[in-house]
Write a protein that binds this DNA or RNA. Structure first.
Length: 564
RNA sequence: GUGCCCAUAGCUCAGCUGGAUAGAGCAACGGCCUUCUAAGCCGUUGGCCAGGGGUUCGAAUCCCUUUGGGCACGCCA
């Protein structure tokens, strides 16, 4: 539950503010308005562990050169009882803080005591947050967009859990409305075609042309034969949907499970109709004067949503739109179920929906800031250097299931989380299964396996991971050792930033860096054949590295193999 | 046409709320295995941060603009 880096930052902030305060008291500084103090980690190693830019910020107010201001502040600092070794003024007026190595040793001790809990922080304070993701159209199999959204949403949820939120993972099942109609019509057409020949009925232009529709009907006929041929079309379609929809949904569930994605709630769109919440919401909008009738339809005014155009809520055929249901659904999330924060993952092609959704929330009295929409760019698959669309096995569009069969869950989850959600993602199918240094998943897993083998080998020789009380960590002084520890110490901070930016891609990059630093350490520092005391200290470092890598990979739900 | 996203090394991408000399990985080139896993490590080469203006002590980062990509603009979801 501890974030060492953040604690240090706060401490340094306080020391700096107090020093400025003392300078004002003693008259060395004129009365001033304290700016927000920024403490950052400098890129350049020689610039210390932390750096403050307050002297530059004060130049205008004080009318003095920044370096002069910095000198005064440094002289007023009280460093007793801190990790700070020295403070110096550098460059145009930065105040750089250099820390004693003790902070690193204490970080290692923290990892040893927190173990699998290391990295967890509590910026969430147990607040209820919903992450709604995948929410694929249940009329067909999961595609690459769902695959990226699934990996991304699932990891966002995990990151928020690690950051101290009470997270609910939700799948919105679009089992109502127009596309279910279309699904029924498509099934019906295939049903008749299969029984009476292709020419018996024309397949609807805007129907679902996928092979899976035909497969459903083949199975239906195998089980029930032609008994629906003479049925009323409307009830026939209903029965066909009742047959096929649950099959699709359970297939989606199965595919997601293989993928390591498990939603806590499968929320049915139809239930919004059935519970009366849809009518309630529309009534509410009417009462608030947010709606207008024209051309036989009911519209929500663009003006109340802060967007240009009005949007249809109820069509002139009396049926509500998806948007109307979506407003009611979001009202349910916040008001009926009391979520403090809702995060939706949508493909970038839905971006047009964001502003009006937030606007509609505002119209029904919900703070739109409580809704965040993470838009992710679409995925392009490559095989043999060319864009791949079709599965080798099925000859159909590549589904999530096909992808998992081809590259496996670890590679899929890792690669989908390597890039920021907003950037386009090229997924190289060949690379994902390559067992080489070009494949980042293997690079990371190899590092973990290597660590594990070091510790195993030592244990076989009767050497165990020592207790902290019998270890002198200050023997760890080599560059490779210190850099590795420093990065391990930053894990809770990485969680914080990932949670705040909703970017789990930070963590895949982080774990790659840790792997890299470990490999460097491994090549520079021998563990097994070191002198006794040093070996103990190095075992602690290696074991801590294993803990951190395991924790990151567990969070991403990627396996951490013991040997490779 | 209007709106949103994007543009950084040959390629794929980082760069947190503006900070000091712009970073990784891959590719290319040169080294390192009788020693805990060479699926590894070390080193070298490689950049007018798309162009132009502005804001300021300071800009890849913020604002404006041009160009070049992607997407959305339906009584679809």
């Amino acid at each position: 539950m501890l974030n060492i880096v953040e604690n240090l930052r706060q401490e340094i902030k306080k020391i700096t503010a107090e020093a400025v305060g003392r300078a004002v008291e003693s008259g060395e500084f004129a009365q001033l308005e304290m700016p927000v103090i920024n403490i950052e980690v400098p890129r350049e190693k020689g610039h210390g562990n932390f750096s403050a830019n307050i002297a530059m910020q004060l130049t205008k107010q004080l009318g003095r050169a920044p370096r002069q201001i910095a000198e005064v502040i440094i002289n007023k600092m009280d460093l007793a009882g801190t990790y700070i070794e020295k403070v110096e003024c550098a460059g145009p007026g930065f105040i750089n803080f250099h820390l004693k190595n003790d902070w690193l040793y204490d970080a290692l001790a923290l990892i040893q005591s927190e173990r699998e809990g290391y990295g967890r922080i509590n910026i969430g304070g147990g607040r209820k947050v919903m992450v709604e993701y995948v929410s694929a159209n249940p009329t067909g199999p999961l595609h690459m967009g769902n695959a990226r959204g699934g990996a991304l949403g699932d990891c966002i949820a995990s990151v928020l859990e690690a950051a101290g939120y009470d997270v609910t993972r939700e799948f919105y099942v679009n089992d109502a409305g127009n596309q279910i109609e279309k699904f029924g019509i498509s099934l019906e057409a295939r049903y008749i075609q299969l029984l009476k020949g292709e020419d018996a009925i024309a397949f609807p232009e805007d129907g679902y042309h996928g092979e899976d529709i035909i497969d459903h009907m083949k199975d239906f006929i195998a089980e029930y034969g032609d008994k629906l041929l003479d049925e009323e079309p409307e009830s026939r379609r209903k029965k066909l949907v009742e047959f096929a929809l649950p099959r699709n949904i359970s297939r989606i569930k199965a595919a997601l499970e293989t993928y390591g994605v498990k939603h806590d709630v499968w929320f049915s769109e139809q239930s919004i109709y059935d519970s009366g919440e849809l009518d309630e919401t529309i009534q509410l909008l009417k009462e608030k004067g947010c709606t207008v009738e024209k051309d036989g339809a009911l519209w929500i005014k663009g003006s109340v949503m802060g967007v240009e155009k009005d949007e249809v809520l109820i069509r002139n055929n009396g049926l509500p739109t998806y948007f109307a249901a979506d407003i009611a659904y979001h009202r349910n999330k916040f008001l009926k179920r009391g979520f403090d924060w809702v995060i939706n993952l949508w493909g970038a092609d839905h971006h047009g929906h964001v502003a009006r959704m937030k606007g509609a929330l505002a119209a029904i009295g919900i703070d739109p800031c409580k809704l965040d929409v993470v838009l992710f760019q679409l995925v392009r698959l490559y095989r043999n250097g060319e864009i791949a669309r079709m599965s080798k096995r099925t000859g159909r569009t590549i589904s999530l299931t096909d992808l998992l069969e081809e590259v496996g869950r670890d590679a899929a989850r890792f690669i989908f989380n390597m890039k920021a959600s907003g950037s386009h993602l090229d997924f190289d199918l060949d690379l994902a299964v390559q067992q080489s240094n070009e494949n980042p998943v293997f690079y990371v897993q190899y590092a973990h396996a290597r660590i594990n083998q070091i510790i195993n080998r030592l244990e076989q020789e009767g050497i165990k991971v020592p207790e902290m009380t019998e270890v002198n960590l200050s023997l760890l002084v080599q560059k490779e050792e210190l850099e590795l520890i420093a990065r391990l110490a930053e894990y809770p901070e990485e969680i914080r930033i990932s949670a705040e930016t909703l970017e789990p891609s930070r963590l895949t990059r982080y774990v790659m860096e840790v792997a890299g630093l470990f490999h460097s350490f491994y090549n520079a520092c021998n563990v097994k054949d070191s002198e006794d005391e040093l070996r103990k200290a190095r075992i602690i470092l290696v074991d801590s590295t294993r803990t951190v890598m395991k924790n990151v990979l567990a969070l991403l739900k990627i396996s951490a193999p013991d040997r490779m």
